[in-house]
Structure formats: structure tokens, C-alpha cells
Amino acid sequence: MSAPDESDHPALPGLPAGLTARPLTMDDAAAVHAVIAAEEVVDLGEAELTLEDVVADWQRPSYDVAASTVGVLDGDRLVAYADLSAPDVAYTAVHPDHQGRGIGTALARWVQARARAAGSTRVGTQVPEGSAADRLLADLGYEVRWTAWDLELPEGAEVRARALPEGYALRDATEADREAAWTLVEDAFLEWSERERMSLADFGARVWDRPGAEPWNLRLLVHATGSGSGEEVVGATHVYLAGDAAYVARIAVRPDHRGRGLAPAMLVDAFGQAREHGAARCYLSTDTRAGARGLYEKVGMVVCSTWIHRSTTL
């Protein structure tokens, strides 16, 4: 692949001597993941983000990898990167061997410049609580906007089975269900998330076009219609495997069907499907905006890591 065009791509001043910077390409995804993983091992005890997560995000049709990223290199080795994933959302990582050298500050300035160019008035990122990145952003004046948690269903633990009410059923999504699933999930998440609606194509890049995706990864909760011969989609769960771990990335129930014990039954189904496909551990994430932590703890999940979303006004 040829080198990306660096025109209209903000520079990265302030790097230590001997380091260089350039826009990234899809060919850099594995190197980016390696940097993220090294940082997460220090901050969390193990790597959580997968290469498939990086690829799924970067392959969105609306996303321009070269225009939205910058990589920092020590010779040919990538040691840090920044990614403006959306006009107000950034991801960065600095390899632990290179932290404390001012690279993170240079990346923060690059992100702010890129976000301004994209028309944003605020930009933020989510970092492990108490991590080097968290401390740096606090020093740079980034404010805490919300707290997030990764929760784990301990190995061997079971979510208490709960039968679905009469008229409800769970099944794999088909291609014909995709638009309905996208609409339902986006409607639910936009009740509390301050962002633009994700396009169907971008949603698909992260769900059914995610590397390694299988039909069971997107499960639908359907409800029989009054005619008795049809059904409507009233809930959706997106779960995928990363090694021996399963991640429930999305779970949503239509507002007019909430309060009937459907979400716990959907979790039981998601974890059961994942274990049938080789998962030993099961995880999901939530934050203070959604107000769902209590629900997950009631079914036996426990907090395994805490994250802070920090942002700054541009």
C-alpha cells in the first residue's frame, strides 16, 4: 500500500528527538493493537481491546483512516498513536516503554487540532481510572464527564434463568432483520448518549461485518403480533468472542416492552450462546449515563475495571 497523502493532515510538534509521525493506514491496525494491548496490560492487568475491534472501527464507510489518525514511530516501530474516531471522540495509546516523554501531550494537542478542524467544540476520550493517561488528561485540564465500568460474569457463575413471558422468543438475526435491529439499538442508545445517529452502514461495520462475525452474534427478541402469524423486533443483543472471552457489546429493549424482565433473559441467552461457542468468561460495559449497572450486578456480574471519560472544550 502506498503512503497516505499528508496534505491537510495536522503536524505533530513536540515529539522527542529521534521519533517521527505519519498518518496511519489499515495495514497499521495490528501495530496499533499491539500498542494498546501493552498499555492495557499495565493499566488493567490484561489486554481487553482486540485487533478485530480496531479493524471494525476503521472499516466504517464514513471513516477516513489516514485523515483521522497519526502514528508515532521509533524507526520502523509504532510506539504511540491517536485516532479521532468521531468529531468529539478520540482514542490514544502510548507504549509503556515510551511514556513520560511528552508523547501523550503532543497527541492530545493533535487530537484537539483535528477535532476543531472537524467542527467540534468538545473532544473527549475514555481511559482507565488512575492510569497514566488519566493523570495526564487531568493535568491538561480535561474534565470528568462520566464513569464507566467493565463487568464480568465470574467463570463458572450462572445468571439465574428467567423464562420469557408468553408471546416472546429469541432467535438469530437474519439479513432481513438488520435495519430493524439497527433502528432499535440506536433509538435505545440515543436516549442517553450525546452523539449523532450512527448510519446503518457504520453500524454494520461494527456488527455483522466485524471480522469473524457469525449469525449467533446478533440475537433478536421478537414478540408475536396480534394477528398471531407475525412478529416484531422488540429487543436486540450483540455478543462476540475474543479468545475465550465473550463481550456483550450492545443490549437494548424497546421502551414499550421494558419492565417485564426481558433484559435478564436476553443476558442469559447471550451468555449461553457464547459458552456454547467456547467462551469461558463473559463481559459487558456500561456507564453512569445508562444507569444499568445495578441491573447487571443483580444478575451476578461484578465490576472488573473502572474507566473515566474526560473531555475538554475547544
Rank of each mutant, 00 (worst) to 15 (best):
Y142A: 00
Y142H: 08
R145V: 12
R145I: 11
W146R: 14
W146C: 13
W146P: 11
W146A: 09
T147R: 15
T147Q: 14
W149S: 09
W149F: 11
W149M: 05
D150H: 14
L151I: 04
L151P: 06
L153V: 07
L153N: 05
P154C: 04
P154N: 08
G156N: 07
A157T: 08
A157P: 01
V159I: 13
R160T: 15
A161D: 15
R162S: 15
R162E: 12
A163T: 10
L164T: 00
G167I: 05
G167D: 04
Y168H: 01
L170E: 10
R171A: 05
A173K: 02
A173P: 00
T174A: 12
A176Q: 06
A176T: 06
D177G: 08
D177W: 00
D177T: 03
R178V: 09
R178S: 10
R178T: 10
E179L: 08
A180I: 05
A181W: 05
W182T: 04
V185K: 10
E186R: 14
D187F: 07
F189V: 13
F189H: 15
L190I: 09
L190Y: 11
L190Q: 12
L190T: 05
E191R: 14
W192A: 15
W192Y: 15
S193R: 14
R197S: 04
S199R: 02
S199N: 01
A201M: 04
A201F: 02
D202R: 01
F203L: 03
F203N: 00
G204E: 02
A205C: 02
A205Q: 08
R206T: 09
R206N: 02
R206P: 00
V207L: 10
R210P: 01
R210E: 01
A213V: 00
A213E: 07
E214T: 11
E214N: 07
P215Q: 08
W216T: 00
N217A: 09
N217M: 09
L218H: 02
R219T: 12
A224E: 15
T225H: 06
G226E: 15
G226L: 12
G226D: 15
G228Y: 03
G230L: 06
E232T: 14
V233A: 11
V234Y: 04
T237H: 10
T237F: 11
T237C: 14
V239D: 10
V239Y: 00
L241F: 06
L241Y: 08
L241C: 05
A242Y: 06
D244A: 15
D244L: 12
D244C: 08
A245I: 06
A246R: 03
A246I: 06
A249Q: 13
I251V: 13
I251K: 01
I251F: 10
I251L: 13
A252V: 01
V253E: 11
R254A: 13
H257P: 08
G259K: 05
R260L: 14
G261W: 07
A265F: 05
M266I: 07
M266H: 01
F271A: 15
G272W: 05
G272K: 03
G272V: 06
A274D: 04
A274P: 12
